[in-house]
Each structure stands twice: as structure tokens, then as C-alpha cells.
């Protein structure tokens, strides 16, 4: 199967050199080719399963349970300033 690996990489926000693309592209094609056997299965009228059990989601009471832990939570951040996360300029 032939796929536009650069487009998929861009959607995934992964840089792909041409060399990597040449390597990963055919591998991806093989994987998707293997997956295509699913088309043999007759799934007419079969409901999709997204969750293994037929259960409803639990819900939470609307009460504040988190205090300010900014300093701790920002410790792993690559770049912060005055409590804000810093990133290269976002162009809208």
C-alpha cells in the first residue's frame, strides 16, 4: 500500500527526513497491508466496540479538590517565566 508518509508525519508532528521516510514509508505500507485483511470480515450490522465492558461513565461531584501546586507541577517544564509556559511564538 502506498501512503503519503510525509503528510501523516506532519499530522503527527514528527519530523521525518527523506531517509527516514524511505525506510518508514514501506514499513508502514506493509503494516497497513497486513491490516487490510480486516476487509475479509463481514461486519454488516455489527456494532463497534470502543470499550471492553458495557458500562456507563461515573461522574464526579462538583467540588474543588485541587489547591495551587504550580511550582511543583512546573518543575518538569522545559521553559517557564513568571508562572507561564514559554513556547516559540504562536502565529494565528
Amino acid at each position: 500500500m502506498d501512503i503519503d508518509v510525509h503528510k501523516v508525519a506532519m499530522l503527527s508532528r514528527i519530523r521525518l527526513t527523506d531517509k527516514e521516510a524511505a525506510h518508514l514509508g514501506p514499513q508502514l505500507g506493509n503494516i497497513l497491508g497486513y491490516i487490510e485483511q480486516l476487509s475479509e470480515v463481514d461486519t454488516t450490522g455489527v456494532k463497534p466496540t470502543a470499550h471492553p465492558h458495557d458500562v456507563a461513565m461515573p461522574q464526579r461531584v462538583d467540588a474543588v479538590s485541587n489547591a495551587n501546586r504550580r511550582d511543583t507541577l512546573q518543575k518538569p517544564a522545559p521553559n517557564t517565566e513568571s508562572g507561564l509556559y514559554v513556547v516559540p511564538k504562536v502565529i494565528e
Binding site: 508525519a9 508532528r13 519530523r15 518538569p76 517544564a77 522545559p78 521553559n79 509556559y85 516559540p88 511564538k89
Partner: peptide
């Protein structure tokens, strides 16, 4: 690369930082 984890050195721009 925004709130934790690896961020590349000297990203040119936002897209470069991500990819």
C-alpha cells in the same frame, strides 16, 4: 515539549519545536 519532557535545542519556530 511544552509542559514536561524533551524539547529540542533552539527551535526555529513552534512547528520546529513540535516536530
Amino acid at each position: 515539549g511544552v509542559r514536561f519532557g524533551h524539547r529540542c535545542e533552539n527551535p526555529d519556530d513552534l512547528l520546529d519545536m513540535y516536530t
